[in-house]
Every structure is written in C-alpha cells, then in structure tokens.
C-alpha cells in the first residue's frame, strides 16, 4: 500500500501490530534496535498496539534474544491472531543474519 492509498487508509482498516520481548538474559542480537528499525519502516496500514490493548492484535512479533525463544508461551500466543517469531539470528525458525532480520519481518508482514 503506497501513495494516495496510504493516505486514504482509515484507522479502522489498519492492522494492529504488537511487540513482545523475552527477558533478554543473553541476547545475541540487539533487540531494541531491531524493533526500532521495524517500527520506523512500518507502512501506514499498521497501528502499534500494547499488551493493554482491548482487542486482540492482528499480528504479534515476538522478539527473543537467542534461539531458545523462551518467551514463546501460550500466554503470549493469545495476544495476537498471528505471530512472527524472531529468535536470535532467525525468523520463524529460518536462519538469517542480524542485518536482514528487519527486512524479513517486514516482508512477512505483507503476506
């Protein structure tokens, strides 16, 4: 969605997107910077939500610092209809270098 279409995107049509982090005891990636990068490049069709939001998110992004993805628990899963899991240098269990993680996530958001 670009140009005029973006400007015409009504708030009610926007998708709710939320981020959840693991606790970060020994991260192999810079989680905060990655989330900033993704948020900065999000298209206008998305609205950022928090876990206090009254409605379920359309998409949740779980940001775990390492491959163990210890925060991937049923409690979190209920927050969103669909999840993208970043776990260290991987997205949805596929390996990826840190520099490409944001791009891969943004591409998955378009699906």
């Amino acid at each position: 969605m670009t140009g005029l279409a973006l400007m015409n995107c009504k708030i009610s049509e926007r998708k709710l997107i939320g981020f959840k982090y693991c606790g970060g005891c020994n991260p192999v990636i810079n989680r905060a910077q990655l989330v900033q990068d993704i948020q900065r490049r999000l298209s206008a069709e998305f609205t950022l939500a928090t876990d206090q939001s009254p409605t379920q998110w359309d998409i949740g992004i779980l940001v775990c610092g390492c491959l163990s993805a210890c925060a991937d628990k049923p409690d979190f899963r209920n927050l969103a209809r669909r999840w993208i899991i970043i776990a260290g240098n991987s997205v949805d269990y596929g390996d990826a270098p840190e520099k490409d993680l944001a791009e891969i996530v943004l591409n998955k958001l378009k699906l």
């Binding site: 981020f19 959840k20 982090y21 693991c22 606790g23 970060g24 005891c25 989680r31 905060a32």
Partner: peptide, 8 residues
C-alpha cells in the same frame, strides 16, 4: 522495561 519484564 518492556525488553526485560518477562524475566523481571
């Protein structure tokens, strides 16, 4: 901090 609350 949202980045650490899961542990903290």
């Amino acid at each position: 901090s949202p980045e650490h609350e899961d542990l903290m």
